[in-house]
Design a protein around this nucleic acid. Structure first.
Length: 602
RNA sequence: GCCCCCGUAGCUCAGUGGAUAGAGCACUGGCCUCCGGAGCCAGAAGCGUAGGUUCGAUUCCUACCGGGGGUACCA
């Protein structure tokens, strides 16, 4: 639970005083936990300690609340503490608190939304997301993980942690040979079977590879073909040796060494294309981790050996199993097949071991691994956590948020996508059609737990069906006013000269209160890995600004009026100008953390 | 069969045990001599069903109903 008092010295002081009052009243010592009342009329902050202490103290909550208030020394900026309802204690902040807030926001800029953590609480976090197989371009569904993982990473950084964004590239194994084989077959004009990848992108890759390497790439077996599933496996005769083909896969019509070499090149080409797709969505990865390096470096063998030495494995029918069931998995999992080849799962084990070694002990708050997965992979969660347990990684340090899937629609009708038939709508096609901000925002404003219906027809409308425009419009509107004000000689640097105590209109107070929430919202969104918190907050803040705009003018209309009146309106205008400046900053911060543009003009 | 997610206003969705459950869209009625009407104000409308835990449940637990996804010596 993010705590308001972590982000605000005034609230920290209040929380400490409440706690002292609880103790002074002879009540059981407890965390006061400040909360925001739902109704603004109840006050700015509230505590429910009295309700929670009722049982242990064996007294009615309202009586406890009274004792609390009797012993409470209110800080100067808290103007009142009242008992309400069943035993809430509500606090109201002095206007000066909000005046200071405007100054702080304007002065601190981007830092306002961010938390500085002491080293002992600062975690080193690895966020892995997307990690789609590099055997085809990303489709729209991957966009959800891209936008969400990226925003979660951004939020964690804002919350004070050190974050790495990582993509695990499945560039090893049978699928890569098959991918290479598909490219070779297309390049040489031969027939594909049902097990091959198809689609225009295969032909594109074939053409690119031909241009770069010539025809012999597809026809001449290399002397040094890469191994795709572990050079150390018993069956493989090392680099250049033949690859075993699974009996249940249609026999390739292509020399395995050619397929392997083409597969590796094709996968790198596809990975590059995926990277470009992600960049188009504004998502940048720090690490592209190759599964193949785990095979080549012997990391998989070492991991299996380590687990075996630790007594975590056993052999049945010639296959090596890992005891994951005792750690909550449905059943034990095969690490090494009876023919000696390691499974994909074995690579997963080596991977998590490698990743943990990179985050463990890097900062005082400890390491953390986050795997953002789609609901179609939810079956992995138990085994992933079990592997972590087998490897001695603390269970609470491996997190696997599961996101529900995306349905692509057009006017309510499902858009059919079949990878096999090569019919798919790629992520970049959607981004081109509807725009990067709309795409990102559509994914970020909904909870991971709910399935998203992404309707191209709806999302391309520039209307309130698209709340991102509402927020961006508010930002553009503020920018426009500020431009006009600047022309009339307002100065952003003169915040000290503005009399902010003049801001007492309900719409102004509402805006001040809303702006005060950003640091807490960011902290909570980060903690819950819930991007929609921040998106909804941005919408709320935008609405608050629109109301302020409607009711409160910054630039006084030119009319005949007394000199006194003119002076009053000018002073008020200056105060409002700085309020708008701060609101713009907060709105830009919120959008920025979601990595959605905050335009000066729409 | 077992596992995960969802069911909140006519529609799309927020709401991590608290006070009177919120937005947008759609609908009805208002607001432009003046900083961007992609805006503002007002109205009507809701927690799938049945139990349980709790001072307090949309939130936690159980069962049921309805929808989505998963359940390989594949990768």
């Amino acid at each position: 639970m993010a705590r308001p008092d972590m982000h605000d010295p005034v609230l920290a002081d209040l929380a400490a005083r409440i706690r002292a009052a609880v103790v002074a009243a002879g009540l059981p010592d407890t965390d006061p936990a400040l909360e925001r009342p739902k109704q603004a009329e109840h006050g700015d902050w509230a505590t429910t300690v009295a309700l929670r202490l009722a049982k242990p103290a064996k007294q009615p909550p309202r009586e406890i609340a009274q004792q609390l208030i009797d012993h409470l020394e209110l800080p100067e900026v808290v103007t009142e503490a009242t008992i309400a309802g069943p035993g809430f204690v509500n606090f109201r902040l002095a206007h000066r608190y909000h005046e200071d807030l405007v100054q702080r926001i304007v002065e601190e800029g981007l830092r306002y939304a961010r938390t500085e953590l002491p080293d002992e609480r600062r975690e080193t976090v690895n966020v892995e997301f997307v990690s789609a197989n590099p055997t085809g371009p990303l489709h729209i569904g991957a966009g959800r993980w891209a936008a969400t993982g990226d925003a979660i990473a951004e939020l964690l950084e804002a919350a004070g942690h050190a974050v790495t964004r990582e993509y695990y590239v499945n560039d090893a194994g049978e699928q890569i040979r098959r991918f290479g084989e598909s490219v070779v077959l297309v390049a040489t004009g031969r027939q594909l079977t049902e097990d091959h990848y198809r689609g225009d992108y295969i032909a594109d890759i074939a053409a690119d590879l031909r241009a770069e390497h010539g025809d012999e790439l597809f026809t001449r077996a290399p002397g040094d073909a890469p191994t795709l599933d572990g050079g150390g496996a018993a069956h493989a005769s090392g680099p250049g040796g033949p690859l075993t083909e699974d009996a249940d896969v249609a026999p390739g019509q292509v020399d395995a060494a050619i397929s392997a070499r083409v597969g590796v090149l094709a996968v790198e080409a596809m990975r590059q294309r995926i990277e470009d797709q992600l960049l188009e969505l504004g998502v940048h990865f720090d690490v592209w981790f190759s599964e193949r390096t785990l095979h080549d470096s012997g990391a998989i063998e070492r991991t299996v050996a380590e687990l075996t030495a630790d007594g975590q494995t056993y052999e049945t029918d010639g296959a090596v199993f890992l005891r994951t069931e005792v750690h909550g998995d449905d059943k034990d999992r095969v690490l090494v097949r009876s023919d000696g080849r390691p499974t994909y799962f074995a690579a997963d084990c080596a991977y998590i071991r490698d990743k943990w070694a990179r985050v463990d002990g890097q900062s005082g708050g400890g390491g953390r691994l986050i795997y953002l997965l789609g609901a179609d992979h939810h079956g992995y969660v138990a085994r992933l956590k079990a592997v972590a347990a087998c490897l001695g990684i603390p269970g609470d340090r491996v997190e696997v948020p599961i996101g529900q899937l995306v349905n692509l629609l057009r006017e309510g009708q499902p858009v059919r996508m079949s990878k096999r038939a090569g019919e798919l709508i790629t992520l970049d096609e959607v981004v081109d059609e509807v725009g990067v901000d709309v795409t990102r925002y559509a994914f970020l404003r909904q909870s991971l737990d709910s399935t998203i219906d992404f309707d191209l027809a709806v999302v391309t409308q520039q209307s309130m069906e698209n709340p991102v425009y509402y927020v961006q419009y508010a930002h553009a509107r503020i920018s426009s006013i500020l431009r006009a004000a600047d022309e009339r000689g307002f100065d952003a640097d003169e915040v000290d000269d503005a009399d902010l105590s003049l801001l007492d209109h309900p719409a102004e107070l509402e805006l001040l209160t809303a702006m005060a929430q950003l640091p807490l919202v960011v902290a909570e969104a980060a903690e819950l890995r819930a991007t929609q918190r921040l998106a909804r907050y941005a919408e709320e803040l935008a609405g608050t600004f629109h109301r302020f705009y409607t009711e409160c003018r910054i630039l006084a209309p030119e009319e005949d009026r007394t000199p006194e009146e003119t002076a009053r309106l000018e002073a008020l205008g200056r105060a409002r100008y700085h309020l708008a400046l701060a609101a713009k900053q907060v709105l830009a911060d919120a959008l920025g953390l979601l990595r959605v543009a905050a335009p000066e003009r729409l």
